[in-house]
Nucleic acid binder design. Structure first.
Length: 314
DNA sequence: AATGGCTTCAACCGCAACCCT
DNA sequence: TAGGGTTGCGGTTGAAGCCAT
């Protein structure tokens, strides 16, 4: 008989996480960074096994996770990649950096598998259009693109370890960590293989986050590059910029209360075709716990969309 | 309004790979 | 190099929500 699973230990809690537990975990990771999961339950007092803490972080609390409906393009990519790679969810997820492997796996099992079945039986033409769609979204990180064409998943995964790319979403409570990420001494955003559009410095709490907004591009479009970057005007029609606090708010969902009272404090560059909208950092301390709590309990918080490159520590 | 079946997805389990000593 | 510990991954489960009756 082998070693019993860690979760079989007496006193280890299982099941859904409470907001309080989330706060404890996020606060701890905010201070120590992710990793060394073994010590997390001990140091936080959480009655969870290390594995559960890691999963909660990677699948739910980690910054940049996009939740909610999958777009037809995402569907198409998943279908193509699944056909190409099989059930290698982590590899597939590396092409959809906003989504977790668990999310993709669930979506495949609950939606796409059935859809494909229906399609094969000829009762659902939808999937055909999704899978044969000629448009795709340009992936921001050139680090795992080869002129817009992917080499292979493992290469993408490897490179992705060096330069993680996530899309920001306020649905994800870890959005609250952005201020910390951008000011954390652990931050190292200068390790992208291609140098990219970002700059930063290790140890002096300065990090530059690049935000590129791309329009969908036609797969065969050889132009690629910056021609597909959404213009400054378009961005400004979608987002409001708070230069004072270094925040970008999606206009449609902008919450003036939050905007005024809670600045996460970060430096942010909005890269456009011919213009860099730069905002200076605020380098104060980590967001206070009350801020974290607000995010945890505020499901309707305003949201910034777009793709944000964040440090490789996640 | 009650209930039973269905769907969804967060979380768990077990195994494999990797890391460290 | 071997062995133990840790982390990552994919399959599976089950609680909660949804919907039809």
């Amino acid at each position: 008989m082998g070693r019993p699973p860690c979760c079989h230990k007496v006193g280890i809690k299982k099941g859904p996480w409470t907001p309080e537990e989330d706060i404890i975990l996020v606060s701890y990771i905010q201070e120590h960074g992710p990793g060394n999961w073994r010590s997390v339950p001990t140091n936080t007092g959480l009655l969870r096994c290390s594995k559960s803490c890691r999963l909660r972080w990677t699948n739910y609390l980690r910054p940049g996770i996009k939740r909610g409906n999958f777009t037809p393009h995402e569907e198409g990519m998943i279908i193509h990649l699944q056909a190409l790679l099989g059930n290698k969810w982590a590899a597939i997820a590396s092409y959809l950096p906003q989504r977790t492997d668990n999310d993709i796996k669930n979506y495949w099992n609950t939606h796409l598998k059935k859809k494909i079945k229906r399609c094969q039986s000829g009762s659902d033409p939808q999937i055909t259009s999704a899978s044969s769609s000629t448009t795709t979204y340009q992936i921001v990180s050139e680090s795992f693109c080869d002129n817009g064409k992917h080499k292979n998943a493992s290469a993408a995964q490897k490179l992705n370890q060096n330069s993680s790319v996530y899309a920001s979403s306020a649905e994800n409570i870890s959005r609250l960590l952005e201020g910390w990420m951008r000011s954390s001494p652990m931050t190292n955003v200068n390790n992208s293989p291609n140098g990219g559009s970002k700059s930063g410095a290790r140890g002096n709490s300065v990090a530059t986050i690049s935000v590129k907004c791309y329009r969908p591009v036609v797969q065969d479009d050889q132009q690629g590059g910056d021609s597909n970057i959404i213009s400054k005007d378009e961005i400004e029609s979608i987002f409001s910029f708070d230069n004072l606090n270094g925040l970008a708010w999606k206009k449609s969902s902008c919450d003036s209360t939050r905007k005024d009272s809670e600045s996460s404090g970060f430096e942010e560059k909005i890269m456009t075709g011919d213009h860099v909208h730069e905002q200076k950092p605020k380098l104060e301390n980590n967001p206070p716990l009350s801020f974290l709590e607000n995010w945890l309990f505020d499901e309707t918080a305003g949201q910034v969309e777009g793709v944000i490159e964040i440090p490789s520590i996640f």
